[in-house]
Each structure stands twice: as C-alpha cells, then as structure tokens.
C-alpha cells in the first residue's frame, strides 16, 4: 500500500499523474523508441570491437605477410600484401592434411563416444532412484567441473609411463591375455605420448570423460520434460520397452540431440588446451590439429601471423558451415527470435 498522493506522484502538475516520459530537470528525455538501442549499444560495441573487428582483421591478415617486423611495438612495418600465397602454402603442405585428418577424426570419434556414453548415463539416471541419481549426478559433476588444464594434467599423470595407474593396471592382466589383445605383456615404462595415435587415444579419453556429464544431464532434463501420460498410454496399448523408446522417447528428444550434437562438434573441433598440454606444446608437428597448427605458425619463431591467420580462416569457415544448420534450427524453433 502506498500512501503517496496523486499530487506527490505527478509533481506539481495535478492533471497528469501518469505523464510519460517523466522529464527530469537538466536531463534530456530519452524517447521510448530509443531505449532498446541505448541498452544494446554497450554490448554491441564490445562485440564489434572484440569479435567482429578481429574477425575482419583475421581475414585481412590471411592475405598478408605479417612477421616480427610488422608486430613490433615501435615503428611497425606495414604488412606486405601477398594475395592467396598463404592459402596456397597451406593447401600444398603435408601438415594441412595431417592436421585436418586429426581435427576431423578426433571430432567424429569424440562426439560419437561422448553422445553415446552421455545418453546411456542420462537414461540410467532417469531410471535410478532419487538418492542414487543424486549421488551419480554429484559424481559426474566432478568430472565436468575439472578445468581443461587440470583435465589434461590429470590424464597425463594417469597415463604416465613409469608411475601411471594405467600401465600398472595393464600389468595386472595375465601375460597371455595382454599379448593376445595388445601384443605386449610388459607395460612398465610404456610411453603413451610419443606416438600420435596413442596420444590422441588419451586425448579422446580425457575429453569424453569431461564432456559426457553435460550430455547426460541434458538428456535427463529432456527425459523429465516428456509427460508421463504418454508412457502410460503406450503401456496400455501393449507397447514394449524398445518400441516405446523408439517411438516416443527418441522423437521427443530429437531437438535436444540436434543441439547437443552441434555443441559437441563445435567444442571438439577446435580442442586446444588439452591437446597443447598432452602433446607438450608445439614440438610434435604430426599431432597438430588445425587450431594448434595455426597457433604454432603464428607464435613460434619466426612468427608467421599471416599464415596462422589463414589456417584460422579455414578452421572458422569449416565450423561456420557445420553450425549454419544449428543456427537455422534455433531460429526456427525459438519463436521468440522473430
């Protein structure tokens, strides 16, 4: 209950208590139509300066030679225009094909494994009792929350050649079985990070471990949003468990899955932190993916920023092509956008 009188509210002008916009002395009135523009302006400026302009700069740099002389603080030399030289150099390089292979294969394998494991765990969580479900959710939260740097470090430690738990566990296997499966019985001192294939194996493990919780919790949220009546009706009609899953659960979860697939592809396509740390920086060129290669060209000496930018352009174009589908999907499903 407010006890303010009309007079107090409307100021001295008793005839118009709800007059809008209320003018304050010494301040020009903001027209109501201008308000949203004023509100988005700061954010828009930040996005323009820190994301759009660099995006444009990246494309410009990819057509130039930008080295030490161009980036020094005092008197930088102007960048030298080289046309599509950087691009011809990329596509002609063996590193392009090995980096592209590493990027794509890693993304495909990791996304598939993450989604499969995440969905299974999501379904499991849905069927567990409330206490058990909370217990497992808190557990997987620990994996999800581990920062990427710590993830890489922990998995490097688990797979350490001398004192790692994994080699210790593999040594527990009966020699015959170990020989049959892996062709070796003694795992003491077995290195995991010298060979690109085994390095990527550990990387896949680390990334799947850290990202399946998000999928699981999202799938669980999706499952909970499906009305129980649908399942009751299906049961009454004599539908079996598999049939119900295929005909009710899967179609209703489809929108969730498409978002999860695209988000996972984006995250796994450009993986940098974990790869950088597991591969020990930029020494192992065979292990490069596109982002690590771009980084290596631009920031090892001598820096080739133009070449690095061109690789970044290639990576961005591939990602935007993939995510175009996702953007369209969101624009279609969210009626709120229009």
């Amino acid at each position: 209950m407010t006890h303010t009188s009309t007079l107090a509210r409307g100021g001295a002008d008793t005839s118009a208590p709800a007059r809008r916009p209320r003018r304050r002395p010494g301040r020009p009135a903001l027209s109501p139509r201008a308000v949203p523009y004023v509100l988005i302006l700061p954010g828009l400026l930040v996005i323009a300066a820190l994301l759009l302009y660099p995006l444009y700069q990246m494309v410009v740099m990819s057509f130039h030679k930008v080295g030490l002389r161009q980036i020094k603080a005092v008197n930088p030399a102007p960048a030298e225009f080289v046309g599509v030289d950087n691009y011809t150099q990329i596509f002609g390089s063996d590193l392009f094909w090995s980096s592209l292979r590493n990027t794509v294969l890693f993304a495909v394998v990791t996304v598939a494994l993450t989604l499969a494991l995440g969905t299974l765990v999501g379904l499991l969580l849905h069927r567990l009792g409330p206490k058990m479900s909370t217990f497992v959710v808190v557990g997987i939260m620990a994996a999800w929350a581990t920062p990427p740097t710590a993830q890489a470090i922990v998995w490097k430690w688990l797979f350490d050649s001398d004192a790692g738990v994994v080699n210790w566990t593999l040594n527990l296997l009966p020699d015959g079985l170990s020989n049959l499966l892996f062709g070796q019985a003694d795992w003491s001192g077995h290195p995991w990070f010298n060979d690109t294939l085994t390095l990527y194996f550990v990387l896949v493990m680390a990334v799947v471990w850290a990202s399946f919780p998000f999928i699981a919790v999202s799938v669980l949220a999706g499952l909970k949003s499906i009305p129980g009546e649908l399942y009751e009706a299906a049961k009454m009609d004599g539908s079996g468990a598999v049939h119900t899953f295929r005909r009710i659960t899967l179609p209703l979860l489809k929108p969730v899955f498409s978002v999860l697939v695209v988000l996972s592809v984006i995250w796994d396509f450009k993986v940098f932190t974990q790869l950088y740390l597991l591969a020990g920086g930029t020494v192992n060129r065979d292990a490069f993916n596109l982002s690590l290669w771009s980084y290596a060209e631009a920031f090892s000496s001598p820096p080739k920023m133009g070449l690095g930018a061109a690789i970044a352009v290639v990576l961005t174009v591939i990602l935007l092509l993939i995510t175009f589908v996702y953007v369209r999907q969101i624009v279609k499903t969210e009626d709120d956008i229009r």
Binding site: I47, L50, L51, L52, Y53, P54, L55, Q57, M58, M61, V66, I71, I266, F269, K270, F272, S291, S294, Y295, A298, F299, M305, G308, A309, A312, V313, L315, T316, L319, L320, T323, Y326, V327
Partner: peptide, 16 residues
C-alpha cells in the same frame, strides 16, 4: 559470433 572459435581470433586480438 558464439560459433566462431576463440582460438581463431587469437592472432588478430594479439596484434591489437
């Protein structure tokens, strides 16, 4: 802009 990988903008932002 959310789809643009942050790693890709590293080079232009570094020079900026």
């Amino acid at each position: 802009v959310q789809m643009v990988p942050a790693e890709a903008l590293l080079i232009p932002l570094f020079t900026m």
